[in-house]
Amino acid sequence: MSGALLTDLYELKMAARYLRRGMTGQATFSLFARKLPPGHRFLVTAGLATWLD
């Protein structure tokens, strides 16, 4: 596996559909974490301030 970020094709298709329909408002996302791979000791996240509130 490469070091690139991974996402599902479904997520990209849904984002494209939303943009085509002009849906640019606030969105809701799920937050979860899996077990880190061997040799990795930390997880990098962004946008947690609202979730933590």
Rank of each mutant, 00 (worst) to 15 (best):
M1P: 00
G3Y: 07
G3M: 11
G3S: 14
A4R: 15
A4F: 15
A4V: 02
L6K: 13
L6S: 11
T7D: 13
D8I: 00
D8G: 01
L9D: 09
L9Y: 08
L9V: 02
L9M: 10
L9I: 01
Y10D: 07
Y10T: 03
Y10H: 11
E11V: 05
E11D: 08
L12G: 05
L12C: 08
L12V: 02
K13I: 03
K13M: 11
M14C: 08
M14E: 12
M14L: 15
A15L: 06
A15R: 14
A16H: 03
A16W: 01
A16F: 12
R17K: 05
R17L: 05
L19A: 04
L19S: 13
L19Q: 02
R20S: 13
R20I: 06
R20G: 10
R21M: 04
R21N: 07
G22E: 04
M23I: 12
M23L: 15
M23H: 15
T24Y: 13
T24G: 01
G25S: 08
G25M: 00
Q26E: 06
Q26V: 09
A27R: 12
T28G: 07
T28A: 06
T28H: 10
T28P: 03
F29N: 04
S30N: 15
S30D: 05
L31R: 11
L31A: 13
F32L: 10
F32P: 00
F32A: 06
A33C: 14
R34Y: 08
R34H: 15
K35G: 09
K35D: 11
L36D: 00
L36K: 11
P37V: 10
P38F: 06
G39N: 03
G39Q: 01
H40Q: 12
R41E: 15
R41W: 05
R41M: 07
R41H: 15
F42M: 01
F42R: 00
F42N: 04
L43Q: 08
L43F: 05
V44M: 00
V44A: 14
V44H: 09
V44C: 07
T45P: 01
T45S: 00
T45L: 04
T45E: 02
G47L: 00
G47Y: 02
L48I: 02
L48F: 09
A49F: 04
T50S: 12
W51P: 01
W51D: 07
W51R: 05
L52C: 01
L52S: 13
L52D: 06
